[in-house]
Amino acid sequence: KLEGVRGAQISVALINSNTGDVVRSGLESSIKLDVVALEGDFNKDDEDNWTQEEFESHVVKQREGKRSLLAGDLVVKLKEGVGEMGELIFTDNSSWNRSKRFRIGLKVATGCCGNTRIREAKTDAFQVKEHRGQAYMKHHPPASDDEVWRLENVAKGGISHQNLSDAGIYKVEDFLLQLFTDPKKLREILGKSIAEKKWDSLIRHAKTCKTKWKLYLDYPDGVTKHGVVFNTDGQPIGLVKDREYFATPRLSAQE
């Protein structure tokens, strides 16, 4: 899926090459643009004087036996010289083409503007990787209800993941609650499965999670060995037993 920086929508503008201003009036300001995939090595010298034929010769089609390389909103409609790109998805990776990269290009739709030459647009070159890699992708920042392996240095199905699961730490929220109630115990749970530098990186990443709760701890024993964890509404959400955090779903009716 193609997105702008930090997931922002990608904007397109028609610029007057003489003044550098957006063309906000006239027939050209409301044209339609076709979205295409380009070879990554198109215009590698970053010059702006390519011809229409050169642009068209670098348009990339799908591999034989594959579906269309681009899917989604393949037309952009300008309004007062400005438009927004909709959802755009690559259906194949870029490892098979000659440059190992793609660009996105935009060109005037067929039948628009008559004989007026409007130079095509292009993005920088980028790699497109297989979608399946997202199944193991880390989240930045992680969400409180993310699986704990979404944290840095916790590999899905790895030893650290298994150690945390055995201790009832399944979500990032569980990880943070154990961290805040007793970080030493959390370090013991992970043990030698994670080195000290990776531990520091893991904690930094976990702390970027924006939680919707605050902790209030009550230790009736007075020695911070056993206690109750409450959320901001005063509802109990877990217990601390022998310095280990237990979320409410893990507790028995008697507890």
Rank of each mutant, 00 (worst) to 15 (best):
K138A: 08
R204Q: 15
T208I: 03
S160V: 07
L2W: 09
D92R: 01
L106F: 09
A155N: 12
E120Q: 12
I104P: 01
S68W: 04
L69A: 05
D166I: 06
E80F: 11
L27C: 13
A13M: 00
K225F: 01
K138Y: 07
K100L: 08
L69F: 06
T224G: 06
V228E: 04
L78I: 04
V228D: 01
Y219A: 05
L74Q: 04
W213I: 04
G111R: 03
G191E: 03
S94V: 02
K241T: 04
H139T: 08
Q254C: 09
G168Q: 01
G40E: 07
C209S: 05
N231H: 08
L33A: 06
H131E: 14
G222T: 06
R98T: 10
V59G: 13
V108T: 11
E147W: 10
R119P: 01
T91H: 04
D124F: 04
P249C: 00
G40W: 05
I203Y: 02
T110S: 07
G114P: 15
Y219N: 11
Q9N: 14
W149Y: 14
A167F: 01
N18I: 10
R98H: 07
F102L: 10
L190A: 05
V35Y: 02
N115E: 13
F42T: 04
G40Y: 06
E56V: 14
R119D: 12
I194Q: 03
L190W: 00
S99T: 00
R103C: 01
Q62H: 15
T19N: 02
D124K: 15
K61R: 10
L70T: 07
